[in-house]
Each structure stands twice: as C-alpha cells, then as structure tokens.
C-alpha cells in the first residue's frame, strides 16, 4: 500500500478524487453530531447541561492520542525502511494533533469550572493530555530545528518513537500521582455509566473529527510535497529529472 501511494503524482490523483467525498462526510457527521449533542440528547440528571461539553472534549482527546500514534507509526516506517514520504505525513499530522490537544485542554477546563469549581483540575487524564501537548511541541520544534530538513525529520521521528513508548508510562504515573494527592471529596467525572442515548452523539462527533483530520492531513501533505518540490527545483535548477 505504501509503495502505491508513495509516488507523489499518483498520491495527488487519488486524493483529488477522494477529497470532496471525505470533506462532505466530515460536514455531514459534524452537523448531525452537533445537532444531536446540543438538542436531542437529554441533559444528565447529575451534571445538567454541562455534559454537552463532553461531546466535544472526549472526541478531541481521542483524536489527540490517535494522531500521536499515527505519527509514531509513520515515523517508525520512515526510519526502518528509509521512506521519506512517511516522515512527510508524520510532519503534516503534527499541527492537527496539537490543535486537538489544545481543544481537549480548553474544553476540559471549561467543563471543570461548573463541575469542580476550578478552571484547571489536576485530573489524571487532563494532566497526561497536557504532557502529550509538550510531546507534540517537542516533535514540531525538533522538526524545524535543523537547516537540513531531512536531518530534522529523522531525529523528530526518533523522538516520536521514544515519546510513544512514554505516553502509557506518563499516564500511569500521573494516575498514581493523582490518587496520591487526591483530596477525597472530588466528584469523579465519569462516575455514572454513560447512558446509551449519549453514546450516539459521542460517536457521531468522533467520526466527524476523524474525517476532518483526514481531510486536513491530506491537504497538509500536499502542501509539504509542494514545498519539497519547490525546494528541489531551486536547488537543482529547473532541470526536473524524470
């Protein structure tokens, strides 16, 4: 599969055909998701209407983690088989991931204020997403830190791999740390089992997010391909080898 998509010309043809479809699907899922999240699903008996923030907060947390594992996998492919296209897609996915992490953190604190009375809550999941944000930042900073882009890609890829091994360790240690310093009386966020009527908007929003991410990822890969091509043309001077 990788070899088929690896040729930029073929990649452009395939994605040009698929792009309108994915964009349409993304819009469809998002609109249905938002409507069902805001209007159709009942308010939670305990938290009232604030549970509606969950429909945005939880999918963006999923997306943040999903995109980081995408980056780690493509980096591993890029390193093992020396595949520059894999490094390119990892570099293209990073800004999307970091936007979803910021979304997750802001909606998390917006949800924490009415629920627990504080903007920032040292909840284990929220803190590990905060460190995931710094892992993304390190990846993007390392990508741009070198004059020679191929050097930057490789060391950022290695950092993505090491970071990926570390995400569960950070999650576990933050959980432990949380139970250590947890003041007893806090209401746990996911106490009540999620009611089935809340699941549908959650998955609709998650699907909407996934399709948006795919669309933006494809566009950003095209942008990076164009940048690479322009850089090569400037260096090799107009003579476009076959």
């Amino acid at each position: 599969m990788f070899n088929f998509l690896a040729n930029p010309a073929r990649f452009n043809q395939v994605t040009d055909r698929l792009m309108p479809a994915t964009a349409g699907l993304a819009g469809l899922f998002l609109s249905i998701g938002i409507i069902s999240a805001l209007i159709i699903s009942p308010p939670d008996y305990q938290q009232g209407d604030t549970v509606r923030i969950m429909y945005v907060h939880v999918p963006s947390a999923w997306m943040a983690l999903f995109i980081y594992s995408f980056i780690a996998i493509t980096s591993a492919i890029g390193l093992i088989w020396r595949h520059p296209f894999a490094h390119l897609s990892a570099q293209a996915a990073a800004p999307i991931g970091i936007t979803f992490t910021i979304l997750c953190l802001t909606t998390g604190s917006l949800w924490g204020k009415p629920m627990w009375g504080a903007w920032w809550v040292w909840d284990a999941r929220l803190t590990s997403v905060l460190f995931l944000f710094f892992l993304y930042l390190g990846f993007m900073a390392l990508n741009k830190a070198f004059d020679d882009p191929s050097r930057g890609e490789k060391s950022a890829a290695i950092l993505a791999l090491v970071g990926f091994i570390n995400v569960p360790v950070i999650k576990f240690s933050v959980d432990w740390w949380n139970t250590l310093h947890q003041p007893a009386s806090l209401l746990r966020a996911d106490g009540p089992a999620i009611h089935s009527s809340m699941l549908t908007p959650l998955f609709l929003m998650a699907l909407g997010f996934i399709f948006v991410a795919v669309c933006v990822l494809v566009t950003r890969i095209k942008v990076l391909l164009l940048k690479r091509r322009i850089r090569l043309m400037r260096i090799n001077g107009g003579k476009l080898r076959s």
């Binding site: 990788f2 690896a6 040729n7 088989w81 020396r82 595949h83 520059p84 090569l232 476009l240 076959s242």
Partner: peptide, 11 residues
C-alpha cells in the same frame, strides 16, 4: 517527478 525509493525488504 522524482520517484521515491522503492520498498526494500527488511532484513
């Protein structure tokens, strides 16, 4: 367009 490196098998 310069084509990318083919897909060597992992030793």
């Amino acid at each position: 367009m310069d084509c990318f490196i083919s897909f060597p098998k992992l030793k």
